[in-house]
Amino acid sequence: MISRLPVRPRHCDAQAMVHAVRYYEFFEDAFLDWLGERGGYDRLRREGADLVIRASGCEHHAPARLGDVLAVQSAPSRVGTTSLSMTFTVRRDAGELVAVGTITYVCVRDGRPSALPPMLR
C-alpha cells in the first residue's frame, strides 16, 4: 500500500527540512492506512487486541523538504506468531529514495503478548 503524505511546516526544522524524528509520524500515518485496508484500528480493538512497538529504526537517504509530497510504501517484512514487522519506504514524488523505516509491533491482550489476529496475518 502507498500513502501520499504532504510535508507540513510542523514536520520541518529551521532549514525547512523534515526533522529526523518526524519520519516516525509518517510511518505511523502510513501504518494506519495499511491497517485500515484490513478493517482498521477500531476493529483490532473490538477484537480485544492492541499493538505496542518493540523496535524501530530509520535510515535516511535524502532530505525531504517543506512542500514535498511523500509516497510511503507500507509492507510487512516479517509476520510472526505475536509480532509483525513492517518496512516503510519513503520516496519523493519523483521517486527519489528519502528514507526507509522499520517497526516491529507486538500484539497484546490485557497487557500480555498474544497471537496476532487473522486481520494481521
Rank of each mutant, 00 (worst) to 15 (best):
G101M: 09
E96P: 01
T104C: 11
A115L: 12
A30S: 12
A115P: 15
G101S: 07
Q15T: 06
R46Y: 04
V106H: 04
V98G: 06
G40D: 10
G57M: 07
L66D: 03
Q73N: 06
S3V: 02
A99H: 09
M119P: 08
V106F: 08
A115D: 15
R65N: 01
V98L: 07
F88A: 04
V98N: 06
P117F: 06
E37N: 13
G80V: 00
D42R: 11
V100H: 00
F26T: 12
R65W: 13
A30Y: 11
C107W: 07
Y24L: 15
P117Y: 10
V52P: 02
I103M: 08
A55E: 15
H19C: 04
S3H: 08
R38W: 08
S56Y: 04
P117H: 08
D13E: 09
F31Y: 15
P63Q: 07
M86L: 14
G95Y: 08
C12T: 15
G40W: 07
V108K: 01
C107A: 02
E59K: 14
L84R: 05
Q73I: 00
L5W: 10
H11E: 12
P63H: 04
E25T: 15
C12F: 05
R45L: 12
A99C: 11
L5T: 11
P6I: 10
E25W: 12
A94M: 05
V7Q: 09
D42M: 04
M86D: 02
H60I: 09
M17L: 10
S114D: 12
A49C: 15
P76K: 04
V18E: 13
R43N: 00
T81W: 03
R78N: 13
D33H: 10
A16Q: 15
A75P: 00
T102N: 14
G67S: 07
D33C: 09
L5F: 08
E96Q: 15
A30E: 10
Y105D: 02
P118V: 08
R43W: 00
V7P: 06
G36E: 12
A75S: 11
V7W: 03
V98P: 05
P118H: 01
R92Y: 03
I103P: 00
A16D: 14
R8S: 00
A75R: 15
R109S: 08
A16H: 14
S3P: 06
F88K: 02
V108D: 02
Y23A: 04
M17K: 11
V18C: 11
R4K: 13
C107T: 00
V100D: 03
A62Q: 15
T81G: 14
G57V: 04
R45N: 11
T102D: 06
R45Q: 10
P63K: 03
A94W: 00
A94L: 10
